[in-house]
């Protein structure tokens, strides 16, 4: 009896302690998701507050909206440009700064600085650097007698230019994760491989890469989710242009919600995006575990 009382007392305090966090999660995360689902079945004007039940119409409209499919294509193009290059660079940098040489701490910090800087600030600075006539990069090209490039105003170059900027920004954080993974590999395995006569490439291929597979999958999942949700640099640097070449899903959701005042339709696209991210997370987690 005494044991049961103690147990229930422990439960009571456990619940009491998690109650503040649980309340915040319920109010700011769970309830908005239910509200999102609810609004996605309605024609809802954020300004007037008028709301009308329209069933699946918003979801049906997504199937016939060519611009939505264009934004999906653009988002996948962004992911394709960003993630493989970013992960390869991050892995290379992690290998470079892995050894505890003198001054390596400073190098790690320098690489990490863009990752901890505000995306708004970075987008504004890179926007100026990419300026077609007065930008730093084009001034440099002009100095070298090379043709100036329309980085952000050409439909072909805008997305790669933004992807390059985000790689530069995010590579440091990925590097830190890889570094943690590399440091978790016991040095005895490397020593045994060296005794067996394995070269640098062989060690990398048969020991390092397989042993950091879980880290790689983790980085891949987080990068994928972040890249699907890209908004800030595109909103600030191109606004989705030129000719919709950088209009990504989240920007389209934003436009529908806040420019076209179609909160219901924006919610339905958000739900679809959420489902895509859940599927990606499910399969990646399965692989991870």
């Amino acid at each position: 009896m005494k044991y049961i009382n103690r147990k229930s007392e422990q439960y009571f305090y456990a619940i009491l302690l998690i109650l503040p966090a649980l309340t915040a999660i319920l109010i700011f995360q769970i309830w908005p998701i239910f509200e999102l689902v609810h609004v996605s079945f309605r024609n809802y004007s954020m300004l007037s507050g008028n709301s009308k039940w329209i069933g699946l119409q918003n979801y049906i409209h997504t199937l016939h909206d060519p611009l939505l499919w264009r934004t999906f294509y653009n988002t996948i193009w962004f992911i394709f440009l960003k993630i493989p290059a970013q992960m390869i660079f991050a892995f290379g940098l992690a290998l470079l700064v892995q050894s505890p040489n003198r001054g390596i701490g400073i190098l790690r910090t320098i690489i990490l600085i863009p990752a901890i800087t505000s995306m708004v600030v970075i987008s504004a600075i890179w926007g100026l650097m990419y300026h077609p006539t007065n930008g730093l990069i084009n001034s440099f090209l002009e100095l070298l007698h090379l043709p100036m490039q329309p980085f952000l105003i050409s439909p072909k170059q805008a997305m790669p230019s933004i992807a390059f900027m985000t790689i530069w920004k995010d590579v440091g954080f990925n590097m830190i994760l890889y570094l943690a993974g590399l440091m978790g590999i016991p040095s005895s395995i490397y020593e045994a491989a060296k005794i067996d006569g394995a070269g640098g490439i062989q060690i990398l291929r048969y020991i390092t890469i397989p042993l950091i597979k879980r880290t790689t999958i983790f980085i891949l999942i987080t990068n994928l989710i972040m890249a699907f949700k890209v908004f800030t640099p595109i909103y600030l640097m191109t606004g989705g242009g030129p000719t919709n070449s950088t209009r990504v899903i989240v920007l389209y959701i934003y436009d529908n919600a806040f420019i076209y005042n179609k909160m219901g339709y924006a919610s339905s696209i958000s739900i679809i995006l959420g489902i895509i991210l859940l599927i990606i997370s499910y399969f990646s987690t399965k692989e991870y575990s």
Binding site: P150, I153, S154, P155, G239, G240, G241, P242, T243, I259, Y260, N261
Partner: peptide
Amino acid sequence: PIYNKLFSQMMIDIAQGA
């Protein structure tokens, strides 16, 4: 506001060579 946003974006695109 909606017309302005879309029309102006078209004019920006045209100015940038679309």
